[in-house]
Design a protein around this nucleic acid. Structure first.
Lengths: 337, 337
DNA sequence: CTGAAAGCGCTTACAG
DNA sequence: CTGAAAGCGCTTACAG
């Protein structure tokens, strides 16, 4: 930095201002400095910036066995976003076996300022309470139940499930099975509600026998398929609350020699990698995972740095758009079927 | 740190020595310091350590569309290991569209000292050459072809494929199909060679028609299944060069109403998440992904820091053990079948 | 075996 | 709008 300063004929302080985008620097001065930076190939040393500034920001991404596909996409998005925000991101696992106290100690040891909570941890109330009592900034990602002590970034799960069910209805399906997600994730309830509302709005009676429980694993999808694919009740379409379960249903259908989508339409939710790894590829709801990670990190970083005097800033609520992506696993119900 | 020093009645220098495990500190002094550290809940500030010491170490993990399951496991392992080694790890994508020059510029901007190359990038010779010319330390992970300019961490792919084929042979199978991996990954060749060698050692003629090409994607596994499951040539067992393809074969077999493992045994390679997401779960070769990440990072960090005078230290070669994990997708060939 | 000095590369106040 | 001073929390030599 000193070299840049002498090369540009200014003080190091001015170079610092240019780097940090201080608006008060004269355009002419700024240009001189920028030129020197470019010519010398100067890159600021982050360690020094952290040391000098008090505006350090260390975030932790807490996860517990989510699907690998979701986690890697979320991780990549978070890492990229953290770097842009000049925040340090550490990644830690927190399983149900660990006590809140043990976790608190771990976070303190890492001098964490903020916590990122993807599902299913985003809905863990005990965890949320413990974090709040440690005065940490927390962001819930993809939750269906924003907490009063946390920021939250999510899609409208209910509307998404409604849209997907509507889509199936418009394809002519009337008997649509539903495989729900873990009851301990708030989004699961919203998704099922969206499914039910679409049916009602369309004037169709809900058949409880067509709604079977799942827990987002492939395995649970297989079990659900066993029930729903029984000839005595088999619907013409099945909407699963996530892609893993939808993929399992496609697999089970094939095993029973049922054609997808000819005889059975199957739709998923999330648009993770498995959605395009099955055949036919899954029609599903795309969640903007990395955008969600990005927003969550930005909110956390800003709110941690802005934490000067005005201590209690309102918790942010960010609703991001979903998208129904149509692929090959669903089809119009033919009259004769 | 100053607080700890006064609390323990020593100089900050001594505290620093204790933290860094300097062997010359008297046990008595060390204990006093440790006690003070514990009591005060002191945690060293990494930014300051980096700034003060010249032994900073910044690593980049370069990836390009590997399977999500592999990437997330590798990422998690790398992140944890980097933190232990006190190395900063940044994660970047490098696709074939990007020129070596553009990548070089990106790495320079990030002041990278070392590069971690998981497959398939570990076998990209142009990339390896470009990195070497930038005098970066690089570690190839899971490669079958260690480069002279890089450290390498790998398993014995040939021996692993040999072991799996042997296992199938011992189960009574004589006609064993093989689905190979991308020819541009060095490990693919080793795996196929292991398969062939087992057959030869067992005194069985190789049927070229049973060896079909794949590229590690689920899709390619489906295509391979189409060929191998044709009644005219159908083998009693199929060994796929990775789990994704093996899962596709299980799926295809089910669609054709073939029982796995009753009528057809299927084995995979890697033991990624998909191996336990299919039904039956896949018998496969477990690669110690996170251990591999850990070793690669440790080697990189040490060699970067040790880079004092003795400039050209030998490139390391680390062979890690694999494990054949037996699950439900293979069975003994019954006499009548 | 332990300590006093200087400095890593920036940024925060504080001046002007 | 720009600069001179001091300091962030450690570690590297260098003494003793």
């Amino acid at each position: 930095m000193a070299d840049v300063a002498t090369a540009a004929g200014v003080s190091p302080m001015t170079v610092s201002r240019v780097i940090n985008g201080d608006a008060r620097v004269l355009p002419a001065t700024r240009d001189k400095v920028q030129e020197a930076i470019g010519r010398l190939g100067y890159v600021p040393n982050p360690a020094a910036r952290n040391l000098a500034g008090a505006r350090q920001c260390r975030l932790v991404l807490l996860h517990t066995n989510p699907s690998a596909a979701y986690l890697s996409e979320f991780l990549l998005g978070s890492l990229a976003s953290a770097r842009k925000s000049d925040a340090e991101l550490i990644v830690e696992q927190h399983d149900s076996g660990e006590s809140p106290a043990a976790l608190a100690a771990r976070l303190a040891a890492h001098r964490v300022d903020g916590v990122l909570l993807p599902p299913p941890l985003c809905d863990d109330e005990a965890l949320l309470a413990s974090l709040a009592s440690q005065r940490l900034e927390v962001a819930q990602v993809a939750t269906g139940a924003p907490a009063s002590t946390a920021h939250a970034v999510f899609i409208d799960d209910e509307a998404a499930a409604f849209a997907m069910t509507m889509h199936l209805l418009e394809q002519g399906h009337r008997r649509i099975g539903y495989v729900s997600g873990s009851p301990d994730q708030s989004a699961s309830h919203l998704r099922r509600r969206g499914y039910k509302r679409a049916l009602k709005d369309f004037g169709i009676d809900i058949e409880e026998v067509l709604i079977v429980p799942g827990d987002y694993t492939y395995r649970s999808g297989l079990e659900a398929a066993e029930r729903l694919l029984n000839p005595s009740i088999r619907p013409t379409a099945i909407f699963a609350a996530n892609d893993d379960m939808a993929a399992a249903i496609v697999g089970a259908a094939h095993r029973m020699a049922l054609d997808v989508p000819g005889t059975l339409s199957v739709c998923g939710f999330d648009d993770t990698a498995i959605a395009t790894a099955t055949w036919p590829e899954l029609t599903t709801i795309r969640q903007p995972v990395s955008a969600m990670a990005h927003r969550a990190i930005t909110i956390l970083a800003n709110s941690i740095r802005r934490k000067d005097g005005s201590q209690s800033i309102a918790m942010q609520r960010v609703l991001l758009p979903f998208e129904l992506v149509r692929r090959g696993s669903d089809a119009r119900l033919e009259a004769g079927t």
